[in-house]
């Protein structure tokens, strides 16, 4: 398996980073190849530029060498792992921007002759989402988990719905004890080791 782990959190010693390294270590222990993109650590630019928007519908929509590198990793991967805190029911802007700038036409999807969208990520067999939430589970359900929806629905239009989705969520993180946090990291580890 080749896994691409994408992490989005502004603080290095955050719980999100702990979850991401737990996941990456577990995958490596299980003998898989793991690439990690830490969006804040590399100073990833979230906003699409004017030039990129103008190039979006051309044959060469990728202008930034850093994005080109990520596209290459994306093409080699068969597993995508997203690790982020849920803010305002969705993913942090830096991760949303990563989707917008790497998942461009010719990479994530193609337009066929009739202008219909065809999936471009059918080599991705598995997607994992690991996210923390300030709110409790019921509240997240009521507001809707829009980050999860974007990944489970919009992204899976690009991978095909046969790509399996695993979702690991820690709800009500602000009121969690350190034991509960530890247990969550253990769960991340166990699930990643068992990933087939």
């Amino acid at each position: 398996m080749r896994a691409l782990v994408v992490v989005a959190h502004p603080v290095d010693d955050s719980f999100t980073h702990a979850a991401a390294s737990t996941a990456a270590d577990a995958l490596r222990r299980a003998g898989h190849h793991v690439d990690v993109i830490d969006l804040y650590a590399i100073g990833f630019r979230a906003a699409m530029s004017t030039e990129e928007r103008d190039a979006y519908e051309t044959d060469a929509p990728v202008l930034d060498p850093q994005v080109a590198e990520h596209v290459e990793l994306l093409r080699q991967a068969d597993t995508l792992v997203f690790v982020y805190p849920t803010w305002w029911s969705s993913m942090p802007a830096i991760l949303k921007g990563w989707l917008e700038r790497t998942m461009v036409p010719g990479v994530a999807f193609t337009f066929d002759g009739t202008n219909r969208v065809r999936p471009g990520l059918t080599h991705i067999r598995r997607i994992v989402g690991i996210s923390t939430y300030g709110s409790k589970r019921l509240y997240v359900r009521a507001i809707n988990d829009n980050g999860r929806r974007t990944i489970s629905r919009a992204l899976r239009l690009s991978t095909g719905v046969r790509a399996r989705l695993d979702w690991l969520a820690l709800y009500g993180i602000d009121s969690c004890s350190s034991e509960e946090r530890e247990r969550f990291l253990d769960r991340v580890s166990t699930r990643m080791v068992a990933l087939r």
């Binding site: 979230a46 969705s90 993913m91 802007a93 830096i94 949303k96 921007g97 917008e100 629905r153």
Partner: peptide, 13 residues
Amino acid sequence: WTGQPARMKGFID
């Protein structure tokens, strides 16, 4: 990608 562009999501964040 079904939502606000990153720049506007960042405004919300």
